[in-house]
């Protein structure tokens, strides 16, 4: 087993609103090994983005607050560190790329200036060195004629180009962990594939670990080594990518897989999961998925199941995983 880079233990991030406490992340644990890609999947409101923000300590406070757990990065618990140390880690050892490439770059600076800022901040390069390194990075992320592009402003680039610039910024200091929060959601499908491929290549080149956050299981299938499925602030299933697709144990995971549009196959109808994610203040008392689950029983409504290890390295949070055979259903559609 390779060494663990990041270990999140029982993370709890709550939002204290006027209407009550929202447990956006409630007892989430996972590991990321060196050079590995972890996918976190879930619908809007499942807590996946808040998990990422918690690792970066970017949870807006108030109203948000990390109330419990540990985030161990290398030898340090990030939650114990002073802000000054956190700022040294951000962008240098852990970087993040965001969903909206159109708005994630500052419109008043050239892209060269923006990449340079990170380099000068963390590596103490001077202006010329930083610019040179910026051009290098732009070339690495596949931007044509980087010597000219480096002097352009964000509004002169297309969405895909901007996301490449974001990736260049994030990787400029060669971080050990890259958190990508829906990096391809705002992009065209063709560009999506290119960006994912690029992230994969760069991971191999720099041996960066990646946490890929998305609602799109198709994206996960392409690049992730293992997956955590989140629902209602909790991990409901966690295993390696191949197992997850072949042998999902949680009805929610099976539902997600079924709801991926497929071109082949005779049945032309999509099978979405019924209903929507409930208001975070009004989750069912028992299993949080109970109100949308086809298999919910009395017990599911009464009490929340624990995350159980069903096979080595395959965890599921469901009372009925033993009885249910979701595998065939998801394949047959």
């Amino acid at each position: 087993m390779s060494s663990t880079l990041l270990e999140v233990k029982d993370l709890q991030t709550y939002f204290f609103t006027d209407r009550g406490t929202v447990k956006a992340v409630d007892g989430v644990s996972f590991d990321v090994e060196k050079g590995e890609t972890l996918g976190i999947v879930g619908e809007s409101g499942s807590g996946k983005s808040v998990t990422a923000a918690s690792i970066m300590q970017l949870v807006p406070s108030p109203p948000g607050d990390i109330v419990g757990g540990e985030i161990n990065f290398k030898d340090e618990n990030l939650l114990d560190l002073k802000m000054k140390r956190i700022r040294k880690i951000r962008g240098n050892e852990i970087s993040m790329i965001f969903q909206e490439p159109m708005t994630s770059l500052n419109p008043v600076y050239t892209i060269g200036e923006q990449i340079s800022e990170v380099l000068r901040l963390h590596q103490g390069l001077n202006k010329d060195e930083a610019l040179e390194k910026s051009i290098d990075m732009l070339e690495k992320v596949g931007i044509p004629s980087p010597e000219e592009r480096v002097h352009e402003h964000p509004h002169q680039l297309s969405g895909g180009m901007r996301q490449r610039v974001m990736i260049a910024m994030a990787l400029a200091c060669n971080p050990e962990l890259l958190i990508a929060d829906e990096p391809t959601t705002a992009l065209d499908v063709t560009i999506q594939a290119q960006i994912l491929e690029l992230m994969d290549e760069l991971r191999d080149e720099f041996n960066t670990s990646i946490i890929l956050i998305t609602h799109n299981l198709g994206v996960i299938a392409e690049v992730a080594d293992k997956v955590a499925v989140m629902y209602g602030g909790r991990i409901v299933e966690q295993t390696d990518t191949v197992t997850l697709y072949k042998d999902p144990e949680h009805p929610y995971t099976a539902g997600l897989i079924k709801s991926i549009p497929k071109i082949e196959g005779s049945e032309g109808k999509l099978k979405p999961i019924k209903g929507t994610v409930p208001d975070p203040l009004n989750f069912p008392n028992g299993c949080k998925f109970a109100n949308r689950c086809n298999y919910a029983e009395e017990k599911c409504w009464a009490e929340e199941p624990d995350l159980e290890e069903v096979k080595p390295d395959h965890y599921v949070r469901c009372w009925r995983w033993k009885e249910l055979d979701l595998k065939n259903e998801s394949e047959v559609k």
């Binding site: 951000r90 993040m96 969903q99 990170v118």
Partner: peptide, 12 residues
């Protein structure tokens, strides 16, 4: 704006 969050995430 997201670029402010991005700047924070880069350690500014």
């Amino acid at each position: 704006e997201e670029y402010i969050e991005a700047a924070q995430s880069l350690g500014a």
